[in-house]
């Protein structure tokens, strides 16, 4: 029985992994343990991970993020390590003599997916001027010099316009995202970007915007405007972006 059963199981596994990706196979890939399904680095889960759930199949045990709630679908999957015991060869032989068959294989667990939580940045407001290129409110970027969080004079008028807008619209909420260029440590750049965000936060606060209407955060070097690797690109990337609720 065993000798028959195993090749069948193996064939089924292989078909599930390498065959044409049927609906069933793609769902099973998610819940199977990592040790049973080999993902080679060159053609891993990359393609299948981002796919929306198959609406027709109900067999998946994974609750996928509700589409439209956050717009950011983050998925996770479980990974079970094989269990391995080691001993000296002499002991192994003794154990063998005892003829004890240990049959505790790695157990499969289904991967969990949690909804991507998001700040409550949804809600309407009068945005007519936000999109009007003639309005200072359409300008959202404060650019910085190298190694500096000082706001240059050229951005004062634009910050005054945003301050005025937020003061007259007390329900308006803004997130201020500081950014750096790509050079150096990502985490240190994250801290530097925070300084740039807070510099805009303080400027707006001095212009009368209550602290509760704003949040200063940093994207570090992770969200470059320009993907280039020269001074022109770096200059563009050193900035703070003003994002309003709902955007």
């Amino acid at each position: 029985m065993k000798s028959l059963f195993f090749p069948v199981l193996l064939a089924a596994l292989l078909a599930g992994c390498s065959g044409t990706p049927s609906k069933v196979a793609s769902i099973e890939d998610r819940s199977v343990t990592a040790t049973e399904t080999k993902f080679v680095a060159d053609k891993p889960l990359v393609e299948t991970m981002g796919k929306p759930p198959d609406a027709t199949s109900t067999s998946s045990s994974l609750p996928l993020p509700a589409a439209g709630r956050s717009g950011v679908a983050v998925e996770t999957r479980g990974l079970v390590a094989p269990s391995t015991d080691v001993m000296g060869l002499a002991e192994a032989k003794a154990a063998e003599a005892a003829a004890k068959a240990a049959d505790t294989g790695a157990t499969a667990k289904s991967g969990g997916v949690q909804d991507a939580a998001i700040l409550p940045y949804s809600g309407g407001m009068n945005q007519a001027d936000m999109k009007d290129p003639a309005s200072l409110l359409s300008k959202r970027r404060v650019q910085f010099d190298y190694d500096s969080a000082a706001i240059r004079d050229e951005f004062h008028a634009m910050l005054e316009a945003h301050a005025k807008y937020m003061k007259t619209n007390s329900s308006a909420r803004a997130i201020l995202q500081g950014n750096t260029d790509e050079r150096g440590s990502r985490e240190y750049n994250l801290a530097l970007g925070q300084r740039r965000a807070e510099s805009v936060f303080k400027a707006l606060n001095l212009l009368g915007v209550p602290e509760g209407q704003m949040e200063a955060v940093s994207m570090g070097e992770e969200k470059p405007l320009s993907e280039g690797h020269d001074e022109a690109a770096w200059q563009q990337n050193r900035r703070t972006e003003i994002l309003y609720q709902g955007e």
Partner: peptide
């Protein structure tokens, strides 16, 4: 070898 994606996101 045996690379497995454990988290996947459109954001950094």
């Amino acid at each position: 070898q045996n690379a497995v994606t454990v988290t996947s996101s459109p954001e950094p």
